[in-house]
Write a protein that binds this DNA or RNA. Structure first.
Length: 152
DNA sequence: GCCAACGTTGGC
DNA sequence: GCCAACGTTGGC
């Protein structure tokens, strides 16, 4: 069982949007970064738990928990010329990009903000708080996961 | 809206 | 295969 963190801009897709989806499931598409792609393709497994992180907003931070309900499969949004994330170098026979499906588990009692996480010496090695980090998907160790949840 | 950090692209 | 130019991310 592994733990993850996934970022989303709430203006684009927030945890409220996830709650309103049919069955509260969302295909996590549009990721166009190879490191993040590789994690979805190779490492994210059914039942893994994921922090939902709101980025690029007034109160950036962890707002909830999701669960992986479908493992890596081709991101067909890359095939659609009308899609914002269309990639002409990807097609159905040779898909370049992958996605997983995630399902809403619960909202945190409060937002655990980036500001707060940055103050914790226990999280000094956590990718999220590293300066200049831009990965939209990252692994979270069990120790980090438990520590962060204990802040709730 | 600014801008630093970073990944990707493409010329050579 | 180097690296400058460019585009994007995301905190502030």
């Amino acid at each position: 069982m592994n733990y993850w963190l996934m970022k989303s801009e709430p203006d684009t897709f927030s945890i409220d949007d996830l709650m309103r989806r049919p069955n509260q499931i969302e295909p996590w598409d549009g990721v166009r970064n190879y490191q993040a792609r590789n994690m979805m393709r190779d490492d994210m497994k059914l039942g893994d738990l994921v922090f939902f992180y709101h980025s690029n907003c007034a109160e950036a931070g962890i707002v909830g928990i999701m669960e992986v309900v479908k493992e890596g499969y081709p991101d067909s949004s890359a095939f659609d010329p009308n899609d914002k994330h269309f990639d002409p170098k990807s097609d159905a026979t040779k898909p370049r990009w992958m996605r997983v499906d995630v399902k809403y588990v619960r909202r945190l009692a409060r937002t655990i903000t980036l500001k707060e996480l940055k103050l914790k010496t226990e999280l000094a090695d956590f990718t999220l708080v590293k300066n200049g980090n831009r990965l939209s998907i990252m692994p979270v160790s069990k120790v980090q996961w438990d520590f962060i949840l204990a802040l709730e």
